[in-house]
Amino acid sequence: MASTLEMTYREALHKSMVEEMDKNADVFLMGEDIGRYEGTFKVTRGLFPKYGHRRVIDTPITEAGFAGIATGAAMAGLRPIVEFMTMSFSILALDQIINHTAKVHYMTNGEVKCPIVFRGPGGAAKQLSAQHSHSMEGWYAHVPGLKVVAPSTPADVYGMLKTAVDDDNPVILYENPGLYAMKGIVPDDPEFKIPFGKAQILREGKDLSLIGYSRMTHVNLAAAEILEKDGISCEVVDVRSLLPLDTETIYASVRKTNRAMVVYEDWRSGGFGAEIAARISEDCFDYLDAPVGRVGGLNVPMPYSRILELECIPDENDVVKAVRKLG
């Protein structure tokens, strides 16, 4: 059995990228301040001295330009990993990603592949306010041609980054900044991979399914602890992969518990949690003892004040409250 190591989410991501770069000379990194400055969230620390400017490329602050150049490089067979300083800035590159990257394979009817990874922090960090706190995963998971994953643990981000680099399709790897410092056990195995489209059950339960991804999985685990004391046994489903979505695991859990609460940090209205909730309603209706519940971020631009900011982001108390209300 392979040994394991304890490390942070940030370190797991870093280790995963190093191993993939060492394995394949076609893998390179591109992004704002990722080289000499070591990255805003320091995920790429030490990589510039190790690989040099050929493979760790500092870009100008022109998101559309470098997203497009990386896409062109992928069309020519290279395997870029593009870091957005925050996913909020990827909005400047939406035309490239949605109108170009995501459609290369279809518009060429399979003649051209586009093996590219876009990764970076999405969602609220701490007091970055309205323009730096977007949850973009639902926007991307709306787009056929992209794959979107949102790992919640160091082991998952380690394994999913590897799967993403290996994938011949464009992948959005969504990291919540609140996870970077989180510690966990990671297999010490460069070949370790987490397949896309596989949700995981992180806690078994029988009364209700708490369904989420990325940092909200940890909020759900905390809520489950609290509810356990009330005698409500929650199953925590970590979706991990939004596109493709593992409805099988989600549905199996809901059919067992007969109640579902979907939790996501993105704006409640129209966020990806709404898609999950709609699907459960459509496909598990006969098993449901209550309407599918949802907890999402408040429908407001993210405010600066820490008090207001915390009000916007769902926490375990919001989840507990919603579960109790569900009846």
Binding site: A64, T71, G72
Partner: peptide, 10 residues
């Protein structure tokens, strides 16, 4: 245009 530059980047 950036895609073309990306081909040249390769």
């Amino acid at each position: 245009i950036p895609l073309g530059a990306g081909l040249a980047f390769a």
